[in-house]
């Protein structure tokens, strides 16, 4: 049995964005929002304005989750890891870059957009802005329940020197065949949690993993996906 404390949560969806107690509802729930920097940045970060939308929603959800956990952005380095899972990856950004290639007939594509055609780059952006020096990587998978990213987070928290991490999901609003989930593709948007090594009074309770059966529970109640866990947390507030 593996155990972690949930100390923060942030999200960006078509309907709303924010963290528990700080929810902004969208004016247009038919699409993911184009988030303005002034809404989330509390110190200058020019790169935010150059980010593609996939990076922007992931960066924003991480920033909300850290704010919810009381971790403020600063240049002071913090040993916090970041792990994300995605089904779509940054395909939307890839298409954007391909458009820039086609417009310039292959001669003058955008280096800025190209730099964001690596799906893990928004984790790098969040690491720079928040000063996070833990490891950072992206999982790309067709099984989209979020169990893999949670189990990797639980393993990392067991290692020496990793007391806190941010983990979650980030998906573009793009259609892909979903052979494993069969119609249950993840909702577009991003959802991140801040997990810590167990402590006495975690803000959102205890997350447990029964590794022998691949079962995750929140405060003793089983959940089937990371999205369901977020709903449990919101319902309990």
């Amino acid at each position: 049995m593996k155990i972690a404390a949930i100390s923060g949560m942030g999200w960006v969806s078509k309907a709303s964005r924010g963290y528990p107690g700080h929810v902004l509802h969208s004016n247009d729930p038919s699409c993911l929002p184009r988030i303005p920097g002034k809404e989330i940045l509390n110190r200058p970060y020019k790169a935010f304005g150059r980010m593609d939308n996939f990076s922007r929603i992931g960066f924003t959800a991480i920033t909300f989750a850290l704010a919810d956990a009381g971790i403020t952005p600063s240049e002071q380095k913090k040993n916090i890891a970041t792990i994300a899972s995605s089904f779509t990856g940054c395909l939307e950004t890839d298409i954007h870059y391909q458009d820039s290639l086609s417009r310039g007939k292959g001669i003058l594509p955008s280096p800025t957009i190209f730099a964001h055609t690596l799906p893990s780059c928004f984790l790098g952006e969040a690491s720079i802005y928040h000063g996070l020096t833990g490891e950072s990587f992206m999982i790309e998978e067709e099984l989209t329940d979020g169990h893999r990213v949670l189990s990797m987070a639980m393993d990392l928290l067991e290692e020496d020197g990793c007391d806190t991490l941010v983990c979650g999901l980030c998906n573009s609003d793009i259609k892909l065949p979903d052979p494993i989930m069969e119609g249950k593709s993840p909702e577009p948007g991003a959802l991140f949690l801040v997990l810590e090594k167990q402590r006495s009074k975690p803000r959102y309770g205890i997350l447990t993993e029964d590794t022998s059966q691949d079962i995750f529970s929140h405060e003793g109640k089983k959940f089937i996906s990371l999205t369901d866990l977020a709903k449990n947390i919101l319902a309990s507030k």
Binding site: G89, L91, D94, I95, E142, I174, L176, P177, P179
Partner: peptide, 16 residues
């Protein structure tokens, strides 16, 4: 496929 994102093939996504 970039001009028709409604018909993206599975093999395009790294997750495949």
């Amino acid at each position: 496929f970039a001009k028709n994102p409604d018909l993206l093939p599975r093999g395009l996504a790294v997750s495949s």
